[in-house]
Design a protein around this nucleic acid. Structure first.
Lengths: 336, 336
DNA sequence: CGGCAAATTGACAGCGCTGTCACACCAAGG
DNA sequence: CCTTGGTGTGACAGCGCTGTCAATTTGCCG
């Protein structure tokens, strides 16, 4: 038979309730008593029964991470970060893929919450950007942490300063002498797509350049959409085409490079290409991709930590800014 | 207050135990009674409390999927498949990244099991190939399903016939006239690496060709190891180098193609390259990669289904063979 | 229609833990 | 000396469900 809390109590010569106190790190246990109990726990290799704890305390020790993200690398990183934090606090994590555009999206989350009763949620883009869900969560008083491209006041989680990141990328292209810079826009459901587009436009404006609608092409973050977008860009009449393409993520940038090969264009000699996110593909194509690196794993960890701190009732928490970096590789060069 | 089983019982005019029977789909409940109960459940939007169920029945309704896999795409697919199956049976899934080569690997799994008490495990390569773990699981009588490159008797799960897949790939290269075919070997901890290497050697032997040790280069499934392996292959003296390279997975194949560019070799004109797994990268590089496609998501689903069927006490189960396909793309051509 | 086995249902205890509250103890203050 | 109030500990009930086993009903047979 397994070791129960009662057994530990007997061994330590205290009541079960006291063992429970030690287990939950509660105040008002004298140091020597705590020592005794901890020693007994260790000696007997006691493992608390999570279901019993949940039932009695009405907590689940579970946090659910929700995603709807085509990029599995990104996801894996986030996941690893959240798991690190969970281990620290003896929480479990559950993962749910969802479709924000599905009609019953909010309802599905609702059911998930009723069924698994997570103590909190970690939301990743683009779920972070779904106002309907956020409102529902607040109504149900479900605590959540966001991982987001920008800061949201009154929310906990982690963010990077995307507008600033885009500004840096555009400044780099401009300083290389590029004047006709195209942008491949991301998936419309992602707030990030808007931030990146807005940053692109603003950077052009600040450099005193005209926006050319022909140089803003829609995509959806997929490799294929990058190819399609590039085909349109590279078919523009001579002199009207771009000398540089800023794709809103790496997959699309890889697609652009692929399409450049198809059109007999050399990267970066004929056209510079840059991406965003620094997923593994950025280093696995030739030429290697100039891109923005964001610390996804770290962000996952921070978001989960913020969440669990809040669950412990440690103050209000906030969104923590995580640092990004611009990775200058071989896909960008001075304008011809 | 939330709706409890007792409330449903009262509404349906039966005892709590009978509601429990309906909930658990047990036999020996008369059809009209079952209807009444189901109606009451639906009307009241009853959601059973998993922790209470776990505590009382000593089941967790949780299955844990264990992995140690550098390829996040593969993982995401498996995960999606397992989740599909879990939804069907109202189980939850938890995911754990592990390191098979870590000293405390088995102990870590042990702790995981003690802590979360999953009703069963889904093992993915290379964890499937760890004899120490499998033995420990049998000792502890923990049910597991394997997702594996080959069939194991007396185990449940899903597999593809890798030896046959390798044979098909080699037959394709041979029929294109290649005689000097190199192999980039996978990570030594993966059983798959051995199967793929063995299949490669056997195919050469059956074609009456000599194995050349210089053409068998070690790798570890990573893009970088593919680059390194290819550099060695492409530095061989004229006439001793390969006309085709069969890499044990797609990432390494992509590395080989990358290195070919570096050496001024054109793929497939100067050298053919093929991979294994058909991960997204296979289509995102140029030229697109000839490779073996395996239905990872399907395999995850099958493994989880086998597991849950076994948990329900439905017979012994078996390893189900899943179909693979050879994807012939632009990275392979007739030998020069 | 009685009698028996099988099918169906219910009473009750208890899974392993924590919330509540009562109690014991001690130091400081009057 | 007795309060007072804070601190540390324990008794006890109960979280929501299921296992066990007994009670009841049903179906079927002669």
């Amino acid at each position: 038979m397994r070791v129960r809390l009662e057994d530990v109590a007997r061994a330590a010569g205290v009541s079960p309730k006291t063992v429970s106190r030690v287990l939950n790190d509660e105040a008002n246990v004298r140091a020597p008593t705590r020592e005794k109990v901890l020693a007994a726990m260790a000696a007997m290799d006691y493992r608390p029964h999570q279901s019993a704890r949940s039932l009695a305390s009405n907590r689940s020790f579970l946090i659910a991470a929700l995603y709807d993200n085509p990029s599995s690398n990104y996801l894996t990183e986030i996941q690893a970060g959240v798991l690190e934090a969970c281990d620290l606090y003896h929480y479990s994590m559950m993962l749910r893929p969802l479709h924000v555009s599905a009609e019953d999206f909010v309802e599905r989350v609702d059911r998930l919450i009723s069924h698994h009763r997570p103590d909190g949620l970690v939301l990743t883009p683009p779920i972070t950007d779904h106002p309907g869900l956020l409102q529902r969560l607040r109504e149900r008083r479900v605590l959540y942490a966001s991982i987001s491209p920008i800061e949201h006041k009154g929310t906990i989680g982690a963010f990077i300063d995307e507008p600033e990141a885009v500004r840096r990328m555009m400044a780099t292209l401009l300083s290389l002498g590029h004047r006709r810079i195209a942008h491949v826009i991301g998936h419309p459901d992602h707030g990030a797509s808007q931030w990146r587009l807005a940053g692109y436009r603003q950077a052009l404006a600040e450099a005193g350049l005209q926006c050319d609608p022909a140089l803003e092409v829609a995509g959806d973050f997929s490799f294929g959409s990058g190819v399609a977008a590039a085909r349109r860009l590279f078919s523009l009449p001579r002199g009207r085409g771009p000398t540089a393409v800023f794709a809103a993520n790496d997959d699309m940038a890889a697609g652009v490079i692929w399409a450049a090969g198809e059109h007999g264009l050399s990267v970066p000699a004929d056209v510079s290409v840059c991406g965003f996110d620094d997923t593994p593909i950025a280093r696995q194509i030739w030429p290697a991709l100039t891109t923005i690196h964001q610390p996804s794993r770290e962000m996952g960890r921070i978001a989960a930590l913020q969440l669990m701190e809040s669950l412990r009732g440690r103050g209000p928490g906030a969104m923590v800014r995580a640092p990004f970096s611009l990775e200058l590789r071989e896909s960008t060069a001075r304008a011809a």
